[in-house]
Amino acid sequence: MLGFLNQGELSLSRRRREQLLFLMDNGIYVVTILLFIAFIFLAPYFFTTRNLVNVLISASLAGIVTAGYTVAILAGQIDTSTQGVLAVATVTTALLFEEVGLSLPLTVILALGAGIAAGLFNGVIVVNGRIVAFVATLATSGVLLAISLFLSGGQTITIAREGLQEVVFIRLFGIPSSVWIMFMCYIVGWVMLTQTKLGAHIYATGADYRAALLSGVPVNRVIRVALVISALTAALTAILVTARAKQSAMFGLAIAGSVDFVTALTAVLLGGFSLFGGVGRIERNLVAVLFLTILGNGLQLMDVATGVILIVRGFALVFAVILSVLRARMT
C-alpha cells in the first residue's frame, strides 16, 4: 500500500546467501567492538571510568525505550509517538515531584500512568480509527507534545527537591540502577515474548495480520497492548532522564545518543527485526543500542559538529533500513 517499488527476491547462491546473512546477524558485534577500540585512540576522555559509566547510563536509557519499541515493531506497529510520550512523562514527573510535592513512588506511578494513557490513546486511534500506526502515532505525537507544552507552559522545570536524582546514581554491585532496570525490562520482555501466549500472539499479529485474525487471535487487543508497552517504557525512560538531569527534559531536537524513536527504530532494525513485524531477536537490540550510544558519545567527545552527528544518525537509520529490507528479500 505504501509504495513498494522493488520487492523482488534476490537471486543469490545459497552459500553466498548464508555468508551474507551470517555477516548481517553478527556484524553488529564486530563493528561495536571496533568502534569502541577506535574511540579509545581517537576520542579524548572516552576511555575513562567516568565516561564509560556515562555511556552505560545513556545506553541503558535508550535501551529501555528500545525494549518496549521492539514489542510494538514485532506486532507490526511502527510507533512514532515516542517523543510525545517522553515529553508528557518528563513534564508530569517534574511537575508532580517539584511543584505538587508528591512522594517519589506516587510520582513514578502517576508518570507511568501518563505513559499508559498515551499508549491507550494511540491504541484508540490505530485500532478504532483503523489507521496505519506509523501515521496515527505521528499525529498523536503532535497532540502529546502540545499537551506537555501546555502543562509546562513551555518552560523547563528545574527540580530543586532532593531524593529523585539520587535514585539514578544508586549502584548495585558497582552497576548503576538504570542499567539494572534495563536488564529487568529485557528479561520481562524476553519472557513475555517467548514464554507467554501474549508473546505468541504479538509475533503472529506482526507476521500476518489477516492469518492471525482468522485464527482467532484477538489482534486488536494485541495491538493495543503492544502500543501501551511501547509508551510505558518511554515513560519509564522519561522519569529516569528527568531524574538524572534534575529538570524536565526538552525532547525537541534529536541528538545522537539521546533517546527518541529514531534511535529506537535504528536499534531495532540493526537488531535484525523486520520493519513489518513478526521476526527478530531482542538481545541483539542491546548491542545495537550500545553501538549507537558509543557512536554518539565518541563523536561528541571528539568535538564533532552537531550537524555531522545528526547526519551520521540519519545515515545509521538509512543503513539499518537497507539491511532490514535486504534481509527480508533474502529470506
Binding site: L2, L275, G314, I322, V325, A328
Partner: peptide
Amino acid sequence: QGIPSFVSTLAVGVV
C-alpha cells in the same frame, strides 16, 4: 531499494 517512502523520507529528513 524497497524501503517504504515514509521511512526513507524520515531518514532523509534527519540527514
